[in-house]
Amino acid sequence: MRKNQLGITRMNLEHLKTFHVVASLGSFTEAAKALYMTQPAVSQQIQGIEHALRNPLFDRSKRQIRLTAKGKILFSYTQKLFGIFREIENVFSDLNHLLTGELTIAASAVMGNYFLSSFIAEFYKKYPLISIRLEMGDSAYVTHLVEEGLADVALSRHVRNLKHCKQKLLIKEPYICVCGPSSPLAALKRPLSAKEFAENYLVMRQKGSRMRSKLEEWFKSVGVYEFLSTPVIEVN
């Protein structure tokens, strides 16, 4: 055991790499070119490994070198060894160039509170080394962050007159009106007319918000102007 251990310690990684390249290419000359070494240097390293293992690794009796039986055994191990090295390089190349960094997401309140949490959790499982920063505000604010380069992406309603970023429609959702079970409206058990709806006391988003503007446009389009003077509770 001591002799084998001494023999193995005399092999270093560079010598094993040289053996692996020679075995892969089947040529000392081509291996020297691939490794940017002289052919005598390649031969010397191979001889060193053979001396350490006390076994010939290549059959040099013919014009084309071939692995001996012992050489094939060593080659099977170097294939695994350098395969692991390539895998390590690929993994860290991804980590360094594609999968690390910081992502700033800006989102309106509904998107940030109700939609993004589950997506961020899934994203973090796949890319644990990416730091995520979430900024929240109304649609005008979050899209402004993207325009100013302060956020990478924003999730919000469509905003007009953006000059420095593009918008892509992801989903359309209907506006839904709700009332409490004790409300007289719930007892009707039928659709409301636009006029009936407009005459009720409503809880609405603030004036100037997308939802408020859309409803005002819709009421005007159906000729119901009572909505504009109906008492409203405004919430941000």
Rank of each mutant, 00 (worst) to 15 (best):
Ile120Arg: 11
Glu148Ser: 15
Ser117Lys: 14
Ser117Arg: 14
Val153Asn: 07
Ile130Leu: 11
Ser108Leu: 06
Lys126Thr: 05
Ala106Pro: 03
Pro128Cys: 10
Pro128His: 09
Tyr127Pro: 09
Arg133Asp: 08
Leu134Ile: 08
Gly149Arg: 07
Phe119Asn: 11
Ile105Asn: 01
Ile105Tyr: 03
Tyr141Met: 11
Lys125Tyr: 13
Leu145Ala: 07
Ala121Tyr: 13
Leu116Gly: 03
Met136Pro: 00
Lys125Trp: 13
Asp152His: 05
Thr143Phe: 06
Thr104Ala: 03
Ser139Thr: 05
Tyr141Ser: 07
Ser117Gln: 15
Gly137Arg: 07
Val110Cys: 12
Tyr124Asp: 12
Lys126Val: 07
Tyr127Asn: 14
Gly101Trp: 10
Phe119Asp: 12
Asp152Glu: 04
Gly101Asp: 11
Gly137Tyr: 05
Leu145Val: 06
Leu134Cys: 02
Leu103Tyr: 00
Val153His: 07
Val110Ser: 13
Glu102Leu: 05
Gly149Ala: 06
Thr143Ile: 05
Leu103Met: 00
Gly137Pro: 09
Val110Phe: 14
Pro128Arg: 06
Arg133Gln: 14
Ala140Asn: 09
Leu103Ile: 00
Lys126Pro: 01
Tyr114Met: 06
Ala121Cys: 10
Leu150Val: 01
Ala109Pro: 05
Tyr141Pro: 00
Ala109Tyr: 10
Leu129Gln: 11
His144Trp: 13
Val142Gly: 04
Ser108His: 11
Ser118Arg: 10
Ala151Ser: 06
Ala140Cys: 04
Glu147Val: 04
Gly101Arg: 11
Thr104His: 03
Ser131Pro: 03
Glu135Gln: 11
Ala106Asn: 02
Pro128Gln: 10
His144Lys: 15
Glu102Trp: 04
Tyr114Gln: 10
Met136His: 02
Phe115Tyr: 15
Glu122Arg: 13
Ala109Trp: 06
Ala109Ile: 10
Ile132Phe: 10
Met136Phe: 01
Ile132Gln: 06
Ser131Glu: 14
Tyr124Glu: 14
Met136Gly: 00
Ala151Tyr: 02
Glu122Val: 05
Ile120Asn: 06
His144Met: 14
Thr104Glu: 04
Phe119Leu: 13
Leu155Arg: 08
Tyr114Cys: 05
Ala109Phe: 07
Ala154Ser: 10
Met136Tyr: 00
Ile120Gly: 04
Ile132Met: 11
Met111Gln: 08
Lys125Glu: 15
Ser108Glu: 13
Thr143Ser: 15
Ile132Glu: 07
Leu155Trp: 14
Ile120Met: 12
Lys125Arg: 15
Leu103Trp: 00
His144Pro: 05
Phe119Lys: 11
Ala109Gly: 09
Phe115Pro: 07
Ile120Pro: 01
Leu103Val: 00
Gly149Glu: 05
Thr143Lys: 10
